[in-house]
Design a protein around this nucleic acid. Structure first.
Length: 599
RNA sequence: GAGUCUGUAGCUCAGCCGGAUAGAGCAUCGGCCUUCUAAGCCGAGGGUCAGGGGUUCGAAUCCCUUCAGGCUCACCA
C-alpha cells in the first residue's frame, strides 16, 4: 500500500510532467506549517534556478494543473514558490478505510531477512542495573519493530558468562566455604546438583571478590601483595575452568543456573524476551579454529607477544588500533569471543544481519570486530553487521545514575520505586481496590520507565529523573496509556447499549478541524512505522504516538461523541477513535508496552 | 595529543539527507469539570539554535574554524 505522501507525490509528478517540467526532484511532504496547509511541495524553488524561471510561476502552473485532482481539496501556489495542498476529506476517508483493512496499516513489508539480534548482555552473577535497562528495552523494541516488518528475528541475551569474573567468584567461594567438595583435591564422586549458594549470596560474592583485587595507590606492600595473590588465584581458576577442570566447571554451572533463573525473572517482569540464552562461553569451542584460520590467511600476526589483526584501511582518517585476539599470556579476549560468536551464528543460523544493542562506548570494539569479520571472510558480502550504541543513563548531576546514597541502582529496585509511585497516584485519584491498583500500577509504571528511555534518541545520554518519570504529565508513557483508556471507555460504554459496534465502513469525511487533524495523523502511521523500521528508531514511534494522542485529546474535548443524536455521525466518530485506539495499541506494542482497561 | 559524539527556552528534550513565523513537556501565569476518566483541554510569556566564517534563492540542518563538555584510543568486558 502506498503512503499518503506517495499518492500526493504521484499527482504532483503528473502535474509537473504535464507542464513539461522534470519530475525527479518532485516530492510531497507533511507540511511544517499546519496553519497554512496539510502537505507541501518545494520542488518549484529548486527547479527555478536550473530553468531560469521564477519559482512562483512554476508553482502556479502546477497548482493550476492540480485543480482537477480528486485527492486534493486544495492546491495553491504561495510565495516564494511553495505549493500548499490540503487533502480532500472524502479521499482521506477512503485512505483511512483502506489503511485500516490493510495488514499492518499498509506498512510495506521488508525483505524478510533473518536477523540475529544481540541485546540484554547481562553478566552472570551480577544484578541487573539501570545500564541494562537500555539494552533490554531498546533491544526488545527493535526486535518487535523488525518482526512487525516481516523479518525473522532471533534474539540472543548473550550472557557475560566467561572470563576472569568466573575465576574471581570461584576463589571467593573457596575463601568463604573451603569445606565444599569442589575444593577437595581428592574428591572423586559426583558433584551435587544443588548450588551451594543462592542468588543473594552470589550477588554479594562478586563485588566482594572484585574489591579484593583492588588496592589504593598508597596501599602498603602487604595489601598490594594480598590483592595480587588473590588475582593470580582467580586467573589460575579461570584458566582451569577454560581447560575443563571438573570442579571449576561444576561451580560455574551452578553460577549460571542460579543467575539465569534470577535474570529470567527480571526480564519476564520487564516483558522482555529472548529466543536464545547463549553466552560468551558458547563461542569458546570455535576459538582455536578461528585463530588458526586468521593465521593461515596471514591476517593475524604477533605484536609485543600478543596476536593481533590490522583493521585500518588507507582511506581511514582516524587511527584504528589493531584488533587484539590473543593476549601475550595466551588467553582469549572480548574481541576473540565476539568473533567466535559470529562464526557460531554463521554456522547455526546464517543470518542476513547481526545487530548488536550495546553501550555506545563499545563502538570501537565492534568496529574492529566487524572489520576483522569482513577481512577474514567470516561473513559474506551482503550480510550486515550493525552496532546500535546507546548512551549512558545519567543522574540529575549529569554523572552516571546512582541511588541517593551513591550505590548502583538495581533494576528491580528501580521498577519497584516507579511502580510504587504510580500506585500511590492511582490510590489518591481513583477509587480502586488495592489489588487492582497494584496490577494497574505495574503496567503503567513499566510503561513510564520504558517510554522515558525509548523517547530519547538511543545514541544520546539521557538524564534519569525519577520525579519527572513518575509525574505522568505531558510526553510520557502514562499520558499515552491514559489516552487509550479514554478511548476504550467510550467504546465500552457505546457497546453496552448499541446493537452493533462501529467499524471503518461507518467512517465519514471529517467535519471539524480537530477531526480532520486526527485523521491526518492516523494517515501517516504507515509512513512513521516504515521509517522507524529502516532507521531502527523507536523514538520516532514515541514522537508519533504523542502527536496522535494529542490529536485525539483535542478531538475528544471538541466533540462529545456519545451525546450525538445522529446515529450515523456517532458511528463515524466511533470508527475514527476505534482506529486511533488500534494504531496506538499497535505502536505501544512495538515499544514493548501494554495498556490497561482503565486507570 | 588523535579521533569521535554532543552543545537548541530556566530545566528535560524533539527537529538535523536544507524550506515559510525553530517545536514539545516541565516550571511560571490565566481560563475550562451537573455532560464519554481534569493523569485532560484551551491560552500567555519565555530563543543570538555555543561563537565566528563559508556554500545556497533559502542554513538549527551542509562545509571550515574556535570554545565548552562527554566518550574512545592493544593485552578488562
Amino acid at each position: 500500500m502506498n503512503r499518503i505522501v506517495d499518492l500526493i507525490t504521484k499527482e504532483l509528478q503528473a502535474a509537473f510532467a504535464a507542464k513539461a517540467y522534470p519530475t525527479d526532484m518532485v516530492t510531497a511532504s507533511v507540511s511544517n506549517r499546519p496553519d497554512l496547509c496539510e502537505y507541501q511541495c518545494n520542488a518549484a524553488m529548486a527547479l527555478a534556478k536550473k530553468l531560469g524561471k521564477k519559482p512562483i510561476d512554476i508553482a502556479k502552473e502546477v497548482a493550476e494543473q492540480l485543480q482537477h485532482s480528486e485527492l486534493l481539496g486544495k492546491a495553491e501556489a504561495v510565495l516564494p514558490g511553495f505549493i500548499n495542498m490540503d487533502l480532500d476529506p472524502r479521499a482521506l476517508r477512503i485512505y483511512l478505510q483502506e489503511m485500516a483493512k490493510a495488514e499492518h496499516y499498509g506498512v510495506p513489508k521488508g525483505a524478510k531477512r533473518r536477523i540475529v539480534l544481540d541485546f540484554g548482555g547481562p553478566n552472570v552473577a551480577k544484578p541487573l542495573h539501570v545500564g541494562h535497562l537500555r539494552s533490554a528495552v531498546i533491544g526488545e523494541s527493535i526486535k518487535r519493530i523488525l518482526r512487525f516488518n516481516g523479518d525473522e528475528v532471533i534474539g540472543d541475551v548473550h550472557l557475560g558468562d566467561w572470563g576472569l569474573q568466573m575465576g574471581l567468584i570461584i576463589e571467593e567461594l573457596r575463601d568463604r566455604k573451603p569445606d565444599l567438595v569442589y575444593f577437595q583435591e581428592d574428591f572423586t564422586g559426583e558433584y551435587p546438583q544443588e548450588a551451594p549458594f543462592g542468588i543473594s549470596e552470589l550477588e554479594e560474592i562478586y563485588p566482594a571478590a572484585s574489591a579484593k583485587t583492588k588496592y589504593a595507590a598508597d596501599a602498603s606492600p602487604e595489601e598490594k601483595e594480598r590483592a595480587e595473590a588473590f588475582k593470580a588465584r582467580a586467573m589460575e581458576s579461570t584458566l582451569k575452568l577454560q581447560n575443563g577442570d571438573k570442579a571449576c566447571r561444576a561451580i560455574w554451572r551452578h553460577i549460571i543456573a542460579v543467575s539465569v533463573g534470577d535474570l529470567q525473572k527480571n526480564y519476564e517482569r520487564l516483558d522482555v524476551h529472548f529466543d536464545l540464552w547463549k553466552g560468551e562461553s558458547d563461542a569458546q569451542p570455535y576459538i582455536p579454529a578461528l585463530i588458526e584460520d586468521l593465521e593461515k590467511k596471514g591476517l593475524a600476526y604477533e605484536s609485543d607477544g600478543a596476536l593481533v589483526v590490522d583493521v585500518m584501511t588507507p582511506e581511514d582518517k582516524m587511527e584504528i588500533p589493531p584488533c587484539l585476539i590473543r593476549k601475550s599470556d595466551g588467553a582469549a579476549l572480548y574481541a576473540t569471543s565476539d568473533l567466535a560468536t559470529i562464526v557460531e551464528r554463521q554456522k547455526l543460523y546464517h543470518p542476513d544481519a547481526m545487530i548488536y544493542v550495546t553501550d555506545i562506548r563499545q563502538s570501537m570494539h565492534f568496529n574492529q570486530v566487524f572489520r576483522v569479520s569482513k577481512k577474514a571472510g567470516l561473513v559474506e558480502e551482503g550480510q550486515d553487521l550493525v552496532h546500535i550504541g546507546f548512551g549512558t543513563v545519567n543522574g540529575k548531576d549529569g554523572k552516571p545514575f546512582k541511588t541517593r546514597d551513591g550505590g548502583i541502582m538495581r533494576l528491580e529496585n528501580l521498577m519497584d520505586e516507579v511502580c510504587g509511585c504510580v500506585y500511590e497516584k492511582i490510590r489518591a485519584n481513583r477509587s480502586i481496590e488495592e489489588k487492582e491498583a497494584r496490577k494497574i500500577a505495574d503496567i503503567v509504571g513499566l510503561a513510564a520507565l520504558k517510554y522515558a528511555d525509548l523517547s530519547n534518541q538511543a545514541s544520546k545520554d539521557y538524564i534519569f529523573d525519577m520525579d519527572k518519570f513518575t509525574a505522568f504529565e505531558g510526553n510520557t508513557g502514562p499520558y499515552i496509556l491514559y489516552t487509550i483508556v479514554r478511548i476504550k471507555s467510550i467504546l465500552a460504554k457505546y457497546e453496552k447499549t448499541a446493537a452493533r459496534q462501529a467499524d471503518v465502513e461507518d467512517l465519514e469525511p471529517a467535519r471539524t478541524g480537530s477531526e480532520k487533524n486526527l485523521s491526518l495523523e492516523l494517515a501517516r502511521c504507515n509512513d512513521v512505522l516504515g521509517s522507524a523500521y529502516t532507521e531502527l528508531a523507536p523514538h520516532k514511534i514515541c514522537q508519533y504516538i504523542y502527536a496522535l494522542a494529542n490529536a485525539f485529546n483535542s478531538f475528544y474535548h471538541e466533540v462529545n461523541i456519545l451525546s450525538k443524536e445522529d446515529e450515523q455521525e456517532k458511528r463515524s466518530y466511533l470508527a475514527l477513535i476505534s482506529l486511533t485506539k488500534d494504531v496506538l495499541l499497535s505502536c505501544i506494542g512495538l515499544l514493548g508496552m501494554e495498556a490497561p482497561d482503565y486507570m
